[in-house]
Amino acid sequence: MSEKELQEFLSVCNVYKGFGEGDSRQEVLRGMDFQVRKGEFCVLLGPSGSGKSTLLNIIGGIDSADDGYISIAGDKLRDMDEKALTRYRRKHLGYVFQLYNLIPNLNVKENIEVGAYLSDDPLDIDELLNTLGLWDHRYKLPNQLSGGQQQRTSIGRAIVKNPDILLCDEPTGALDYNTSKEILKLIEDVNQKYGNTVIMVTHNNAIQDMADHVIKLRDGVVRKNIVNENKISAVDLDW
């Protein structure tokens, strides 16, 4: 991959997206434009309704732009049909949601295996369980776990296939302060250990300090595009 490609691993080019029709139509994204480098920890920061989740879904290939395009390593998502999009998600993406969405009757290890199944070259599950601090809980069902443990499991499921991009939609939104910091630390570790590009959507301003790249959104446009030269570790975050 050339230096330029590294720099523009993920390009969001003039993306528009609206919902509804007629008078009730609402433009959520209005010409969104930025690039993310490979291996970067990027935070999309903004208040409710700023369009950050919509943008994440478009990057994830589960929603589409009305105009403009997203390209990953030069491949434009808008040129992909549904099958190609599924392949793209399968091969390149890991997803972490606010509400973990684990399969209730599979245990921790099996939930992670669900992610591993999608990859030709998954990470070692036992090693990952240790990294996630879930080794002792690996045979527990989701309902026997705390919120933090469930989110760790969902992160495990997302990264076990070693995706190029890890998309996190408010991963700490349902967690308390301490657990949130643990989860953020975990995502930071994963980013550093495996080199995945992380794109995290949050409305928590404090999280921007741990990112390489911060994109502040409001009313569907990029208000600020900041490269954070002085990032700090997740453990040092405070809010």
Binding site: I62, R89, K91, L93, Y95, I103, L118, S154
Partner: peptide, 14 residues
Amino acid sequence: EAAVIGTLRATGYT
């Protein structure tokens, strides 16, 4: 199981 299905589809399950 809608949310789980959505997650699986989002992560690449066909």
